[in-house]
Design a protein around this nucleic acid. Structure first.
Lengths: 219, 219
DNA sequence: GCTAACTTGTGAAACGATTCACAAAGGAGC
DNA sequence: GCTCCTTTGTGAATCGTTTCACAAGTTAGC
């Protein structure tokens, strides 16, 4: 029961994406080396990543594309649909709600919230349907009733930690945070943060230090 | 000079954010331990991170908040303004253009592009001003003339690599990618990627494997 | 059935990042 | 000036991840 590194999980996602593309092109078999080239890593890394979960290849031959896709989807928990709520109906929140890539991968946006009374009741078109913005005041009740799997947080930084605390208390076990702050959650809650200001600062640093520091990081 | 790890740069951003908050609250001095608590790390880590760039504290006392803010801004290259172009005027591109956090930190959106003729010419309100969506066809000419520092890529995955190649050929040295694909750039171009599908898959994995029993056992 | 060509799966080695632990330095009280 | 308390800066130890290197399994050709 080994702990799987975050970087490993990210690479598995990348492999899956490339495998799906390969399948669409009719490729049926692929080697760890081909997979590595496209994922920007090495064949040993690919094999090591997969070896945490079992052995999926055939020596001398490589991996069966369709089988490996199935295995990776299983490993990543993509064999089912996940329901997602979006907390914060600002520009980014509504843009995410409308991003069809989510639905395509099984992440279904089931509700969107804001605390601004002027926004509550407004209609947001989510791929395939329409959702009305709900009042954040009712979020605890809704969570108790609907048991969403994942909350996406797109509120101003000042409000983020207080909202996370409410979400966690209400029983949310996975949060994707877009607010530009460092959040604290209990150990049993999964948290990922996307901090665009931080990414831009990373680029700023790279541009300012264009010495040997070959910053070429695509996680 | 030693190569600075990506994780270090991210933490420096986090320290800076917390320091700015502390300054607003009137705190003038801070220890590595306080800084660590808030950044979710350890005091030794904080001191090590800073030690790559010099020695900024006073033994027995800690760090002067204002001085450390200045030093970090200098290190991260935030002592100047950076001009940013946004490539792709879809939902996410326009949402980012309007995100005022960028401007506040010195990242000025100077142009936004799309290839859809119906979008070209449309007006997008960027904090403080208005920008007209330009035709991607003219992006090489514009880059040669305006020399933007950073390009933010918010186009569909299928188009992303081809566009990156054009941007790189035109002389762009830093790219922030939002397309859900693994991009290749030359070593002298800084690249950061934000892949929301990958983040959601990371949460999916965490939710699926949270009874840490099923994950791997044998050998 | 044998050989050659290939590719996986995996211990071991190398590498890189984090944490430890402590000497050095600054401030406060007397 | 001396002692005590605090906190930095940093070499050394530790820990975790990546890369190496090779035995073992698979296919193809003859």
């Amino acid at each position: 029961m080994k702990r799987i590194a975050d970087s490993t999980v990210r690479r598995l996602s990348a492999y899956l994406r490339f495998l799906e593309e390969s399948a669409r092109r009719g490729i049926t078999t692929i080697s760890s080396d081909e997979l590595a080239k496209r994922g920007g890593t090495t064949s040993a890394q690919v094999r090591k990543d997969l070896s945490f979960f079992g052995s999926f290849g055939k020596r001398g031959l490589g991996y069966a594309v369709d089988e490996l896709i199935d295995s990776l989807r299983e490993i990543l928990g993509l064999g089912r649909q996940w329901s997602v709520i979006i907390v914060g109906a600002g520009k980014i929140g509504t843009a995410l709600a409308q991003y069809e890539g989510f639905r395509r991968r099984g992440f279904i946006v089931s509700a969107i919230y804001d605390r601004d009374p002027r926004k509550v009741g407004e209609s947001v078109s989510v791929t395939g349907t329409e959702l009305n913005v709900r009042d954040i005041a009712q979020i605890e009740r809704d969570i108790a009733r609907d048991k969403p799997d994942i909350a996406v947080l797109t509120v101003p930084g000042e409000d983020a930690q207080a909202l996370v605390d409410r979400l966690v208390r209400a029983g949310v076990k996975a949060i994707l945070n877009f607010a530009p702050v460092q959040l604290r959650v209990p150990a049993d809650v999964a948290l990922r943060s996307v901090n665009m200001a931080m990414e831009l600062e990373g680029l700023s640093f790279a541009l300012s230090n264009r010495n040997p520091t070959a910053v070429h990081a695509d996680r």
